Amino acid sequence: MTEPSELQLSEAPPGGLTRQGSLWGDAWRELRRKPRFVISAAIILVVLLMAVVPSLFTSVDPNFADLDHSRALPSGDAWFGYDLQGRNLFARTVYGTRASLIVGVTSALLTVLIGSVIGIVAGYYGKWLDSLLSRFGDIFAGMPFVLGAIVILTTLNAPTSNPSQTRIIVQVVLSIAVLSWPVAMRIMRSATLVAKQLDYVKAARGLGASPFRIIFRHLLPNTLAPVMVYATIAVGAFIGAEATLAFLGIGLRPPVVSWGVMISDSSNYVRTVPHMLLFPAAFVTITVLAFVMLGDAVRDALDPKSR
């Protein structure tokens, strides 16, 4: 006759995969009924298309300048008008989506990767290692974001330097991730502290499973949900951060075309040529709002208490 404890262990789903699959399935069914999710997903899909295939939206070269059209108002030929150098603002807004989205998405992925690794290690091992990693995270969390970014980016680039487009994007992504990972670390650490007290994790530890197997087979699948919600919201926040850094003159810079660069170019002409600022700023605002709405919808769907 099988012992009750052995029966329970044999019937328990390894790593809680059955329960996790049900959680994601229920969340998807819940999301499809939410207008907030549908609207935000539609906006993000359009933004992704603009970033991946900008030629679907415009055939105009975003860097083509015609001084005869300098500061021209929006019209049928140029829906968003022209900037100071006579460049088509609609074309620049469409093509600027790619750089802004690359910075937002890669910064969020890198932030979540760094924070999740440190957070799950701190939460699982605890004791002195948890205290050490938590205090290390507090150091970075205590840095003002703008001031920290100014220090990092001005240190990497002298004012007279002329770095390549790829190097500028990489530096901006790294600076955002370095200053933002403690939030993801705290979320993952809290989720790990809860998950490691569950019965199947204790059973795996009692059966002699290695820490590596416990972390990646049992803990990680059950701690991803809150981190994914944060990552979704962080994409929007980091797109706004890119625009902020470019406006201050320490982020992306010409010849890179991004929403932040366009906002920076319009900073001295807001009163005389307001449409130079209006349209790229509107795209930043709408995109950030869409990602925040998507994150809120995903959070509500993954939280059983909100149903």
Results as ranks from 00 to 15, higher is better:
Ser75Leu: 06
Gly76Lys: 07
Asp77Tyr: 15
Ala78Val: 14
Ala78Asp: 13
Ala78Gly: 10
Trp79Pro: 01
Gly81Thr: 05
Gly81Leu: 14
Arg87Thr: 11
Arg87Met: 12
Asn88Thr: 12
Leu89Gln: 15
Ala91Thr: 06
Thr93Glu: 05
Gly96Cys: 03
Ala99Glu: 05
Ala99Tyr: 05
Leu101Glu: 09
Leu101Ser: 09
Ile102Thr: 12
Ile102His: 00
Val103Arg: 00
Gly104Cys: 03
Gly104Thr: 02
Val105His: 05
Val105Gln: 06
Val105Ile: 06
Thr106Tyr: 01
Ala108Phe: 01
Leu109Asn: 01
Leu110Arg: 03
Ile114Phe: 00
Gly115Arg: 02
Ser116Cys: 07
Val117Ile: 08
Gly119Gln: 00
Ile120Pro: 03
Ala122Met: 05
Lys127Leu: 12
Trp128Tyr: 15
Leu129Glu: 03
Leu129Cys: 05
Asp130Cys: 07
Ser134Leu: 11
Arg135Ile: 05
Arg135His: 13
Phe136Thr: 14
Phe136Ile: 08
Gly137Leu: 04
Asp138Gly: 13
Ile139Gln: 07
Ile139Phe: 15
Phe140Thr: 09
Gly142Trp: 10
Phe145Tyr: 13
Val146Asp: 04
Leu147His: 00
Ala149Ser: 11
Val151Leu: 14
Ile152Arg: 01
Leu153Ala: 06
Leu153Asn: 10
Thr154Asp: 09
Thr155Pro: 07
Leu156Gln: 13
Leu156Pro: 11
Leu156Gly: 15
Leu156Thr: 11
Pro159Phe: 11
Thr160Cys: 07
Ser161Trp: 04
Asn162His: 13
Asn162Cys: 11
Pro163Ser: 04
Pro163Gln: 08
Ser164Thr: 14
Ser164Gln: 09
Gln165His: 11
Ile168Lys: 15
Ile169Asp: 01
Gln171Ser: 14
Val173Lys: 00
Val173Pro: 02
Ser175Pro: 04
